[in-house]
């Protein structure tokens, strides 16, 4: 037991140190990238605030003076890192609202979408995988293989449009866009979830087939354990040892790569926020959004590590013993 707690402490310490490093690196990279973007940042910010038609040289100068954009680059960077160290992310250059609020709002949106999508993918893919594994090579298995190829071949925007046309426009079951009602999350989450479910099904199927052939599952049978307990106590858990790290990778892809689907369904998530921040040169929001994404990925990896420790007590690195 104490060994496991020590392992847990090790994971948390390692990931904690990693997150600090990631925070600094991402901030600096973001800053440099924004500096290299073409065009006058003060002009773009002013346009974001007052609209394109109302911007002139004077407004841009006012913005420049107000935000200190004429200071040397290293001062601006130093100021931002200092603020970050005090956990003060500043205010949006465009809306003047605190960045924490702004990014927090979008982060919540992304997390909701990712969590529901992942849940859809796990339920759909997991069930298909377990069913396919009952008879490898049987009709269900072949159907599942076709499903995997099918959902991987359809790009998310096309799948999203098809779902909108069928479920929303034709059947009128769900709202097509928006963030207002709870049902608004279903279509974007389903679009993402179906796309992922194919590979989840494949990984689950292979893991379950392998575990079912293992000696400990056969021994569980001859011990006299009923089939459903063998499945619940031995097969599911050992298959999860393979599946959970895979779901972690999928979660990262979900968090990073949902821009298309967020845009399609006008879902207010981080991807959405990031695109707008780049467009309006809203450096604090941009940096905070990138930072949030980076830290989220570290957090997800930490969760996967902790779940792995809980599921599988075997040590990860082992010295050969006599």
């Amino acid at each position: 037991m104490s060994l496991r707690i020590r392992a847990l402490g090790g994971v948390l310490a390692r990931r904690g140190a990693q997150s600090v490093g990631v925070a600094v690196l991402v901030s600096v990279l973001c800053f440099l990238v924004v500096r290299r973007l073409p065009g006058d940042a003060a002009y773009r910010i002013a346009a974001g605030r007052y609209g394109y038609d109302l911007v002139d040289e004077k407004a841009a100068d006012a913005v420049r003076a107000e935000l200190g954009l004429d200071r040397p680059a290293w001062q601006q960077l130093g100021g931002w890192l200092g603020d970050l160290f005090r956990l003060d992310l500043g205010r949006s250059l465009v809306t003047s609202r605190p960045v924490v609020e702004e990014v927090g709002y979008y982060l919540l949106g992304t997390l909701q979408l990712a969590a529901v999508a992942l849940a859809f993918a796990t339920v759909l893919g997991g069930a298909a995988g377990v069913l396919a594994a009952r008879r490898p090579g049987g009709p269900v298995d072949r159907l599942a293989t076709a499903w995997v190829a099918g959902v991987r071949a359809v790009p998310p925007f096309l799948l999203g449009l098809v779902l909108v046309i069928v479920l929303s426009a034709q059947l009128g079951l769900l709202p097509a866009v928006g963030h207002d009602s709870a049902s608004g999350i279903v279509l974007p989450a389903l679009t993402l979830g179906i796309g992922l479910s194919g590979l989840v099904a494949r990984v689950t199927r292979d893991a379950v087939v392998e575990v079912r052939q293992s000696d400990y599952v056969r021994f569980a049978h001859t011990k006299g354990l009923a089939e459903r307990w063998v499945l619940l106590r031995h097969v599911v858990r050992n298959a999860a040892v393979v599946l959970v790290p895979y779901l972690g990778v999928q979660a990262v892809i979900l968090v990073e790569g949902v821009v298309v689907v967020e845009s399609l369904f006008a879902w207010q998530g981080l991807g959405h926020a990031l695109v707008h921040a780049v467009f309006w040169r809203d450096v604090p929001v941009l940096q905070a959004a990138a930072l949030a994404l980076a830290l989220l990925i570290v957090t997800l990896n930490t969760l996967v590590d902790v779940a792995g420790l809980w599921l599988d007590p075997r040590p990860r690195r082992q010295e050969a013993r006599a």
Binding site: D215, Y216, N238
Partner: peptide, 18 residues
């Protein structure tokens, strides 16, 4: 398990590692 029991080959592999 009730009347007929098997002590399998490879006991190390016959125990669930988790």
């Amino acid at each position: 398990g009730r009347e007929l029991a098997l002590l399998p080959q490879e006991p190390g592999l016959s125990l669930d590692p988790t």
